[in-house]
Design a protein around this nucleic acid. Structure first.
Lengths: 99, 99
DNA sequence: AAAAAGAACTTTGGGATGCAAAGTTAAGCA
DNA sequence: TGCTTAACTTTGCATCCCAAAGTTCTTTTT
């Protein structure tokens, strides 16, 4: 049996990024401002974590204007969904190992 | 209902330290050399992660000589056991949220 | 048309973290 | 007295993280 620790995803080992993915996996298209509110981080900080996820192609971006204001929405990609699932499975295995 | 992400433990968000705790929680008194072998890290790197756990008083150290060689054993503390459990519970809640 | 405002960034600066490799220490052996 | 080994400690460098400040783009106000 494989070591579940080997299946942890480096990028998703950070709380903020894990939480972003966790929101996006069940909400198809989530706004920057809402993410910021939920996570309680500064906008610059959030932008950098989002960028890290974009770099990995775990999420995609679409920009538009809503109510005359810029509105950015993020969606999880198939690749992101798989990575997230794999990471969660690894976490689950780690947890299970201890029970 | 509380946000499980808030219960994640900063110190245990690192793979190596999580794995050390995971070994120690079920093995009472584990050697430096065995840990090094299991984790596949350099000895200096391992020592620094161990130090981080010691700083938090999550583990304790006992040194002796076995077969005329230095032998260092680590044990999880009660505080460490609680922290580990809390962290795992948080992880479990995160996982469960998605299923 | 110029100024102001707001959302979403980007940059900056500084501190913490992570790592491998090299150096150190203590005990025992030759 | 050197040599070896385990277990560190130090060093040097790269990466990461964060808040705060600055920037861009579009729309609104004047």
């Amino acid at each position: 049996m494989k070591n579940p620790f080997d299946n942890l995803d480096k990028v998703l080992e950070h709380r903020v990024r894990l939480q972003i993915m966790s929101v996006l996996v069940t909400n198809d298209g989530y706004e920057f401002s809402s993410l910021k509110e939920i996570l309680g981080v500064t906008d610059g900080n959030l932008a950098s974590h989002i960028k890290a996820l974009e770099r990995e192609k775990y999420i995609s971006v679409s920009k538009s204007f809503v109510d005359r204001k810029p509105n950015t929405k993020y969606k999880i990609t198939e690749r992101g969904r798989n990575a997230f699932k794999k990471h969660l499975d690894a976490l689950e295995a780690v947890v299970k190992q201890q029970k």
